[in-house]
Simulated scan of single mutants.
Amino acid sequence: MRPAPCLPSMQKLLLLGLLLLLLLQAGLYAQPIPAQGAQPDTTAVNKRRLRTIILAESAFYVAGMSYLQFIWYKDKERVPFHYYNDSRGYLQVDKFGHAFGAYVESYAGYHLLRSAGLPRNQSLLYGGSLGLILQTPIEVFDGIYEGWGFSWSDMAANAAGSALVVGQELLWQEQLLKFKFSFSPSPYREQAHGYLGDTALESLFLDYNAHTYWLSMPLSRKGRTGLPPWLSVAAGYSANGMFGEFENRRWYRGMPIPETNRYRQYLLSLDVDWTRIPTRSRFLKRVFSSMFFLKLPFPALEVNSKGQLRGYWLYY
């Protein structure tokens, strides 16, 4: 079993993926992606911009892999390649995180290449697969260092995240479904004596109870129903009561952790598709384009595995 306080591989790739997205979109995403409809393949390739994107992505990739090799795993013992079956871990919240990280990376990669004028099929091949390309070496590293292990279920989740980007472009020529994330510090952190993080920032990476993953879809694809084109409905998944990967710890740092029941949460809520908000401001278009993966707090309904039905005035 993995050492309890160390970050599982999902957090490593999520951190790298979000940093990649912020760096690339802040510095290179000059032309926001149209909110609806297919992008034509008649745009001339901006070779200078394309070179800049490729160099930036390559530099980030090398930097990320170097960080893992020379800093993250520096004090870890290298062992023969081995596997680790964590498919049941954290009630699969970890797998949603893997898929989300791959989706964000593939989404950014695809749209960056399209913004440089690269044809759709090439952008899908080289950009749409970026999430899987970035995350596979992390799984391989996990397989050769003590305390982790190569996980086929992680690989499947990584592939699913990239496939969600590629599949939608092939089917609808747009990202109709947005894979989103919301975070709210859970009450379990205060009860865990540091096991789930000593601060709210640490709990972002250590406390799966605080994570919710969403699939968000516009209620009106073409705005023909009279509803705003940005108004969406979102289905979410989360879990609670987790003080460990497969079963809950009872002690940490010599202090007791209260006994809790682990349970799954299934949620339904409204949402905003940031990329469909109409604005003439170039700045706001760039801001909204960069927020595509964030779920806006809205009222929500929850059905959980304890058989309870709950309502929230605001869920985030």
Rank of each mutant, 00 (worst) to 15 (best):
P278I: 06
K47Y: 10
P137Y: 06
L19P: 07
G241L: 00
R286Y: 01
L21S: 10
S232Y: 01
S115Q: 12
Y83R: 14
L16C: 10
A163R: 05
A44K: 15
V62M: 12
F141R: 02
A30N: 07
F183N: 07
F100R: 08
M242N: 02
K306R: 09
M155Q: 12
F298E: 00
V287N: 08
R88D: 15
L294N: 04
Y315A: 02
I144N: 03
P32G: 08
G254S: 10
L206Q: 14
M291F: 07
W148A: 09
V104K: 07
A30F: 11
T199V: 07
C6L: 14
N158H: 02
S123D: 03
Q191Y: 12
A99G: 08
L15D: 03
I277D: 05
Y266P: 08
V233Q: 08
L301C: 02
Y316V: 01
N261Y: 01
V166E: 03
A59P: 13
R310H: 04
A200L: 09
N240T: 01
S182M: 12
G127P: 11
L171I: 04
E190A: 14
L176Y: 13
L55F: 10
L176T: 13
G143Y: 06
W230Q: 00
T279K: 14
L201Q: 09
R310L: 09
E247T: 08
Y316S: 02
R249V: 02
K180R: 13
R120M: 08
R221L: 11
L125K: 12
A59S: 15
L219E: 01
R280L: 09
D198Q: 09
F205S: 13
Y315V: 01
G117V: 04
P3H: 12
L22M: 06
R120A: 08
S162K: 06
S153M: 07
R48L: 08
L176H: 13
S162M: 07
A59G: 15
F70N: 14
E247Y: 08
D75I: 03
G37W: 02
A234W: 00
Q168E: 07
I257K: 09
E105G: 05
Y266W: 05
Q122W: 09
D75S: 15
W251T: 01
G307I: 00
V93F: 08
Q191H: 11
G109C: 09
K95W: 10
L301D: 00
L18W: 15
G17V: 06
S289Y: 05
L270E: 00
Y73P: 12
T52L: 15
I133T: 12
W274L: 04
L177N: 03
A156S: 07
